[in-house]
Design a protein around this nucleic acid. Structure first.
Lengths: 202, 202
DNA sequence: GTCTATAGGTGGATAGAC
DNA sequence: GTCTATCCACCTATAGAC
């Protein structure tokens, strides 16, 4: 199983670089010329692999979503407690930010009005998948009395997705990952049942 | 006081439209041609008022920041309680979102890496001004036992700015302002001392 | 202050040779 | 699968007439 020639497929290298460019500069902030320069190939070659920028963009979101799903599955496997799962989830965002990047779909949410329809749908699907996973973890944590929150778990999940995306966005402008960490820690602390209650209240 | 001729200044109309374009499409998602078409003038005329796009962008941020400062001053004048001030603050964001827009500086935070230096500095200054105002309101609210939160008010202020920006960003993608409202209500409820405690705990 | 005209560059995308 | 060469639309920006 696997094609005939090339290895470390050009298409894969294109996706890798294009992903970084979208995460740092936005979908309207880079061009095929940027990718061509970075990979030492011609623009025409890129169009062979990804005929249009819209198709490249769609593939990027699908790939990002797939990798995210794998990461969430790994968390489910590694961690038993809801609190630990949430911390790992936040860790994914922190890793992206520490690489000087914004979440791919957070970035595309800003570009949303300029995106072709297939990309738009893929972006909202990404957020929904995150919300579903988070809501399940939150429900579990509340059932096991590890987490405490009022109302629908989906609402809290939406708060977490929105808040983490925004915290990333602003923190990256300041070039201060610590801004993100402080916000994320606070969001998690508000959900945990006991320990932070005593540690932080002033 | 006021110049010689034209009225409802062209420069002002340019700023008005350019602001909307940045808030909906991002700084790299519109061109002088878009403005020229929208205002029925030529691109050359636009360059008379704003020689470069970078200068136009900077003016937009300064103007937005000034208007925001005026709005915050109006809140300070109208509302005495910290809780009411926070609700009004959230209302500003909600109003922007209901106009189908993203916060100007939230949008520019996404475009950050592609912005000229003067615009970058202006964007972070905007966030800092918001954080300062919020921190003061939070301190006041805690001192008057109207609000409850642990640790530095500045940290909570940063959480609010980041979370509201992100909630806006995601909600706009879904075209559901209700997503923003639900998150904002939850953020405020977590800060209020009594009433939500009884209303929401399930 | 607004226009016509245009410069000089870059955008995404294609044709066709190798 | 990658190249050269090219198209054409669009970009920001300027010169100079009115």
């Amino acid at each position: 199983m696997s094609g005939p020639a090339t290895r470390t497929d050009t298409a894969e290298r294109v996706l890798e670089l294009a992903e970084r460019l979208v995460q740092t500069r936005g979908f309207n902030g880079f061009s095929y010329a940027d990718i061509a320069k970075g990979l030492q190939v011609t623009k025409a070659s890129l169009h062979y692999h990804f005929p249009t920028k819209a198709e490249l963009g769609l593939r990027l979101i699908e790939r990002y979503g797939d990798n995210f799903a794998l990461a969430l599955a790994a968390i489910d496997e590694d961690e038993a407690s809801a609190a630990a799962r949430l911390r790992r989830y936040v860790g994914i965002y922190a890793g992206v930010l520490n690489a000087g990047r914004m979440c791919l779909c957070g970035m595309l949410a800003a570009d949303y009005m300029t995106l072709p329809e297939p990309m738009r749908t893929a972006v909202t699907h990404f957020f929904e998948a995150n919300e579903r996973w988070l809501a399940a973890v939150l429900e579990q944590g509340r059932a096991e009395a590890e987490l405490r929150f009022a109302g629908d778990a989906v609402e809290v999940a939406r708060l977490l997705v929105g808040s983490l995306e925004g915290a990333m966005l602003v923190a990256r402008s300041f070039g201060e990952a610590s801004r993100f960490e402080a916000i994320a820690d606070r969001l998690l602390a508000d959900l945990l049942v006991a320990e932070p209650e005593r540690a932080l209240v002033g």
